[in-house]
């Protein structure tokens, strides 16, 4: 990995709140910069006062030594500045919470230990789409995330797009945001949710509206049929090993709903909730030893597969574009 510069990390980082790609995040980034600048000025002034109190000759620091400076610096100044900041912050907060409009895309995200279940509400003719750990969205259209959890508290956070919102048992939290430009934005669980909390990330992939429609089209399709004997063997092993008890692959007898839907798993950028890149090697490694790669996740390791069988299953999964 090439060493990126500090500036790049901050202003175009995959997961940086200071690299906003939508109105929610840019509103907050603007507030942040204003506050950083103000804080820097206030900090320097206070330190200069402190330095003056120590270093100026006794005769020339009398102005700093009375109750007046305490009242001016400790009461009057903060009250004025904070009143302004409060009004600005409240006005900003008001714009960040928006109502649904008819063209809002509604996506349910359900937090689970330690991955994200994603469900798109049906639109027009199309069925609903169920996927995991990767959220595709169109640019330039309001998107409403309806956030719930199946187990403990998680927190849904895509720094480049918006602030975080918790997923709390017994309630549905709504977060409406918009994305300005196509790209990949990384999100991560921000509330400690148990063992593998550190390995619970996801990608948001923003497309131009036409590309999004195409993606949606593709997702609505059933899983592709195996094209080669190796892939056919992979599917056979997948079903025989009981993977379908937890995972669904639409168009096959696998209809489990405990783990992520794998109908189009091969099309995703990463596996294990943003933990590893998605390729045959990582898929094979994951199947064989998921408990070592991501301890306390709910999928057992499958050391039963021979090397060859493992390759077949991994190849099959990778083919599910």
């Amino acid at each position: 990995m090439a060493r990126s510069s500090i500036i790049d990390d901050v202003f175009s980082g995959l997961q940086s709140a200071l690299a906003p790609a939508g109105p929610n995040a840019s509103g907050i980034a603007e507030l942040s910069w204003i506050m950083f600048a103000a804080a820097a000025v206030i900090f320097v002034v206070v330190m200069v006062f402190l330095a003056a109190a120590i270093l100026l000759p006794p005769g020339r620091r009398g102005w700093l030594s009375g109750q007046g400076v305490v009242i001016a610096g400790g009461i009057v100044f903060p009250v004025v500045v904070l009143t302004a900041l409060l009004v600005y912050g409240l006005a900003l907060a008001r714009t960040l919470v928006r109502e649904d409009t008819p063209d809002t895309l509604r996506i349910h995200v359900i937090g689970e230990q330690f991955w994200w279940r994603v469900r798109y509400e049906r639109e027009g003719e199309g069925d609903e789409i169920v996927t995991a750990n990767e959220i595709h969205v169109p640019t330039g259209r309001p998107i409403r995330f309806l956030l719930t959890t199946r187990d403990v508290i998680h927190s849904f956070w895509i720094p480049s797009l918006a602030g975080k919102l918790d997923m709390i048992p017994g309630q549905t939290n709504g977060l409406t945001l918009a994305v300005e430009r196509p790209g990949v934005y990384r999100g991560q669980c921000a509330e400690f949710c148990g063992g593998a909390h550190a390995l619970m990330a996801f990608d948001v992939v923003a497309h131009a509206p036409a590309d999004f429609a195409a993606w949606r089209e593709a997702q609505l399709r059933r899983a592709v049929e195996p094209a080669t004997p190796l892939l056919a063997r992979g599917r056979e092993l997948f079903l025989a090993a009981g993977c379908g008890a937890c995972h669904a692959v639409r168009g096959t007898p696998a209809t489990g709903s405990i783990g992520p839907d794998l109908t189009h798993v091969g099309s995703r950028r990463s596996i294990a909730a943003g933990s590893f890149p998605n390729n045959q090697g990582t898929l094979a490694g994951w199947i064989a030893d998921s408990q070592h790669l991501k301890p306390s996740n709910r999928m057992p390791s499958f050391p039963v597969f021979s090397g060859e069988d493992l390759r077949a299953v991994a190849a099959y999964l990778e083919s599910l574009k």
Binding site: V70, G73, G74
Partner: peptide, 19 residues
Amino acid sequence: MAVSVPSGIQVFAWIATIA
């Protein structure tokens, strides 16, 4: 916001005392 004001008072009281 309100809770930060008293800390400001104390900081300035210490600075004034030092001065």
